[in-house]
Amino acid sequence: MCAAAFCTHRLTLVTGHYGTGKTEFAVNLALALAAEGQAVTLADLDIVNPYFRSRERRPELQQAGVRLISSSQACSDADVPALPAELLGVFQDRSRRGVLDIGGDPVGARVLARFRPQLLNEDYQLLYVLNANRPEVRTMESAISYLRGIETVTGLTCSGIVNNTHLCGETTAADVRKGAALAEAVSAATGIGIVCHTARQDLAPLLSDLPETVFPIQIYMKKPWE
């Protein structure tokens, strides 16, 4: 598996309904790209949720050579939706790959709207993360409704679906397959391709028959007792 093979654009915008696992996917993607020798910046642009943020993984990211930019860095535990000026570097510095971890739902994706002019000049992909175990996006109709909502507020077009279906520590291969079926239905109805299915490293070998890439992930966003 090569992350650069399914993540073919310079900038990757990670969006989706909240709680689908966008941050876990974004952290894993940034680390995988860095491990493949790419210069990577991870931007934590969640202006909705002050808990379970990619900036909490700063030491691991820094050690792996991933540059981390986070909202309201001076006051990292406040729920102030302020974005650092440094962020513009992600759009301007074409020598680096960028993974942008966006807040949940259309309300969280709104942060991207102000960068639309810059984004349209760049090589980017907007990914929509799906989790079939999340009650509000478990049907094709509701999943598409959130997807269209995100496209509407950002003024950008989604070009890839990530099946990140999990149930925290209780995830089985069957959960990933359930999500694959939902992703296929959403893909068939919208014409948007499936970029990859994520699976914890121990589950990935059980899913090699899936037609799309299976991206093996490590769990970085842990709870204090894990």
Partner: peptide
């Protein structure tokens, strides 16, 4: 089967 819920939204649904 089991579903994945965020604590606060689960409080409201409950």
């Amino acid at each position: 089967g089991k579903e994945l819920w965020k604590g606060n939204e689960a409080i409201a649904e409950a």
